[in-house]
Protein backbone atom coordinates (compact mmCIF):
# COMPACT_ATOMS: atom_id res chain seq x y z
CA UNK A 1 0.00 0.00 0.00
CA UNK A 2 1.59 3.23 -1.07
CA UNK A 3 0.34 6.80 -1.38
CA UNK A 4 2.58 9.68 -2.37
CA UNK A 5 2.68 13.21 -3.75
CA UNK A 6 5.25 14.19 -6.37
CA UNK A 7 6.24 17.30 -8.30
CA UNK A 8 7.72 15.23 -11.13
CA UNK A 9 6.26 12.93 -13.82
CA UNK A 10 4.48 9.82 -12.49
CA UNK A 11 5.84 6.43 -13.53
CA UNK A 12 2.70 4.29 -13.83
CA UNK A 13 4.78 1.21 -14.66
CA UNK A 14 6.71 1.47 -11.42
CA UNK A 15 3.45 1.84 -9.51
CA UNK A 16 2.03 -1.25 -11.20
CA UNK A 17 5.18 -3.18 -10.25
CA UNK A 18 4.55 -2.25 -6.62
CA UNK A 19 1.24 -4.14 -6.54
CA UNK A 20 2.29 -7.12 -8.67
CA UNK A 21 1.37 -10.35 -6.91
CA UNK A 22 1.05 -13.97 -8.12
CA UNK A 23 -2.34 -14.21 -6.37
CA UNK A 24 -3.76 -11.47 -8.59
CA UNK A 25 -5.51 -12.06 -11.88
CA UNK A 26 -6.49 -8.43 -12.44
CA UNK A 27 -4.89 -5.02 -12.17
CA UNK A 28 -6.90 -1.89 -12.95
CA UNK A 29 -4.96 1.32 -13.60
CA UNK A 30 -6.63 4.73 -13.62
CA UNK A 31 -4.77 7.75 -14.99
CA UNK A 32 -6.16 11.26 -14.63
CA UNK A 33 -4.92 13.55 -17.43
CA UNK A 34 -4.92 17.29 -17.85
CA UNK A 35 -7.50 18.05 -20.56
CA UNK A 36 -7.77 21.14 -22.71
CA UNK A 37 -11.28 22.21 -21.71
CA UNK A 38 -13.57 22.49 -18.70
CA UNK A 39 -17.12 23.81 -18.47
CA UNK A 40 -16.88 25.34 -21.91
CA UNK A 41 -13.58 27.14 -21.33
CA UNK A 42 -10.28 26.46 -23.04
CA UNK A 43 -7.72 25.29 -20.48
CA UNK A 44 -3.99 25.82 -21.02
CA UNK A 45 -2.73 24.11 -17.87
CA UNK A 46 -3.32 23.35 -14.22
CA UNK A 47 -1.73 24.18 -10.94
CA UNK A 48 -2.19 21.85 -7.98
CA UNK A 49 -1.72 22.86 -4.38
CA UNK A 50 -1.43 20.02 -1.87
CA UNK A 51 -1.28 20.06 1.91
CA UNK A 52 1.01 17.07 1.97
CA UNK A 53 0.99 15.87 5.62
CA UNK A 54 -2.76 15.38 5.64
CA UNK A 55 -3.07 14.38 1.96
CA UNK A 56 -0.71 11.46 2.59
CA UNK A 57 -2.26 10.31 5.88
CA UNK A 58 -5.82 10.59 4.55
CA UNK A 59 -4.72 9.04 1.22
CA UNK A 60 -3.34 6.00 3.05
CA UNK A 61 -6.60 5.76 4.95
CA UNK A 62 -8.54 5.63 1.64
CA UNK A 63 -6.25 2.87 0.34
CA UNK A 64 -6.74 0.88 3.55
CA UNK A 65 -10.53 1.27 3.21
CA UNK A 66 -10.39 0.04 -0.40
CA UNK A 67 -8.29 -2.93 0.57
CA UNK A 68 -10.63 -3.87 3.36
CA UNK A 69 -13.88 -3.35 1.41
CA UNK A 70 -12.88 -5.10 -1.79
CA UNK A 71 -10.39 -7.67 -0.52
CA UNK A 72 -7.62 -6.22 -2.63
CA UNK A 73 -4.16 -7.62 -2.72
CA UNK A 74 -2.35 -4.40 -3.56
CA UNK A 75 -3.34 -0.77 -4.10
CA UNK A 76 -1.30 2.38 -4.67
CA UNK A 77 -1.78 5.99 -5.71
CA UNK A 78 0.42 8.93 -6.69
CA UNK A 79 -0.84 12.50 -7.12
CA UNK A 80 1.01 15.41 -8.68
CA UNK A 81 1.55 18.84 -7.19
CA UNK A 82 2.64 22.08 -8.88
CA UNK A 83 2.10 23.17 -12.48
CA UNK A 84 1.05 20.71 -15.16
CA UNK A 85 0.67 21.10 -18.91
CA UNK A 86 -1.97 19.58 -21.18
CA UNK A 87 -1.82 15.80 -21.47
CA UNK A 88 0.28 15.37 -18.36
CA UNK A 89 -0.69 12.68 -15.87
CA UNK A 90 -2.10 14.29 -12.72
CA UNK A 91 -2.95 11.15 -10.76
CA UNK A 92 -2.52 7.38 -11.06
CA UNK A 93 -4.36 4.69 -9.09
CA UNK A 94 -3.50 0.99 -9.38
CA UNK A 95 -5.59 -1.75 -7.79
CA UNK A 96 -4.74 -5.44 -7.98
CA UNK A 97 -7.07 -8.26 -6.95
CA UNK A 98 -7.71 -11.93 -7.61
CA UNK A 99 -10.55 -11.03 -9.98
CA UNK A 100 -11.40 -8.02 -12.15
CA UNK A 101 -14.65 -7.00 -10.49
CA UNK A 102 -12.97 -6.15 -7.17
CA UNK A 103 -10.11 -4.42 -8.95
CA UNK A 104 -12.45 -2.18 -11.02
CA UNK A 105 -14.62 -1.29 -8.04
CA UNK A 106 -11.66 -0.57 -5.78
CA UNK A 107 -9.96 1.63 -8.35
CA UNK A 108 -13.17 3.62 -8.78
CA UNK A 109 -13.59 3.93 -5.01
CA UNK A 110 -10.06 5.24 -4.54
CA UNK A 111 -10.20 7.93 -7.22
CA UNK A 112 -13.66 9.09 -6.10
CA UNK A 113 -12.56 9.40 -2.46
CA UNK A 114 -9.28 11.09 -3.43
CA UNK A 115 -11.27 13.78 -5.26
CA UNK A 116 -13.75 14.15 -2.42
CA UNK A 117 -11.55 14.07 0.68
CA UNK A 118 -7.92 14.99 0.14
CA UNK A 119 -6.66 18.53 0.77
CA UNK A 120 -5.71 19.08 -2.86
CA UNK A 121 -6.77 22.14 -4.87
CA UNK A 122 -6.70 22.72 -8.60
CA UNK A 123 -6.36 26.06 -10.31
CA UNK A 124 -7.20 26.14 -14.01
CA UNK A 125 -5.40 28.56 -16.28
CA UNK A 126 -7.49 29.62 -19.29
CA UNK A 127 -6.59 30.86 -22.75
CA UNK A 128 -8.14 34.27 -22.01
CA UNK A 129 -5.54 34.80 -19.26
CA UNK A 130 -7.86 34.14 -16.32
CA UNK A 131 -7.20 31.50 -13.66
CA UNK A 132 -9.73 29.97 -11.29
CA UNK A 133 -9.80 27.53 -8.37
CA UNK A 134 -12.05 24.61 -9.32
CA UNK A 135 -15.09 23.88 -7.07
CA UNK A 136 -14.79 27.20 -5.29
CA UNK A 137 -18.27 28.74 -5.15
CA UNK A 138 -17.04 32.14 -4.06
CA UNK A 139 -14.47 32.20 -6.88
CA UNK A 140 -17.19 31.41 -9.43
CA UNK A 141 -19.30 34.26 -8.08
CA UNK A 142 -16.30 36.60 -8.20
CA UNK A 143 -15.62 35.54 -11.78
CA UNK A 144 -19.13 36.28 -12.94
CA UNK A 145 -18.87 39.73 -11.42
CA UNK A 146 -15.60 40.29 -13.20
CA UNK A 147 -13.71 40.52 -9.92
CA UNK A 148 -11.36 37.59 -10.41
CA UNK A 149 -7.67 38.32 -10.57
CA UNK A 150 -6.28 37.74 -14.03
Amino acid sequence: MSFSITDGPIDAGALRALVQDPHCGACVVFEGWVRNHNEGREVLGLEYEVYEPLAVSEGLRILAEARHRFGLSGVACVHRTGRLGLGEVAVVVVAAAAHRDEAFRACRYVIDEVKRRLPIWKKEHYRDGEARWVNCRHCVAADSEGLAAS
Binding site: Y51, H79, K115, P119, W121
Partner: peptide, 10 residues
Protein backbone atom coordinates in the same frame (compact mmCIF):
# COMPACT_ATOMS: atom_id res chain seq x y z
CA UNK B 1 -6.51 24.99 12.72
CA UNK B 2 -6.42 24.43 8.94
CA UNK B 3 -9.19 25.97 6.82
CA UNK B 4 -9.55 24.12 3.52
CA UNK B 5 -11.66 25.55 0.67
CA UNK B 6 -13.58 22.96 -1.43
CA UNK B 7 -11.07 20.35 -2.55
CA UNK B 8 -10.51 19.39 -6.18
CA UNK B 9 -7.92 16.66 -6.49
CA UNK B 10 -7.73 14.16 -9.34
Amino acid sequence: VLFFPPVAGG
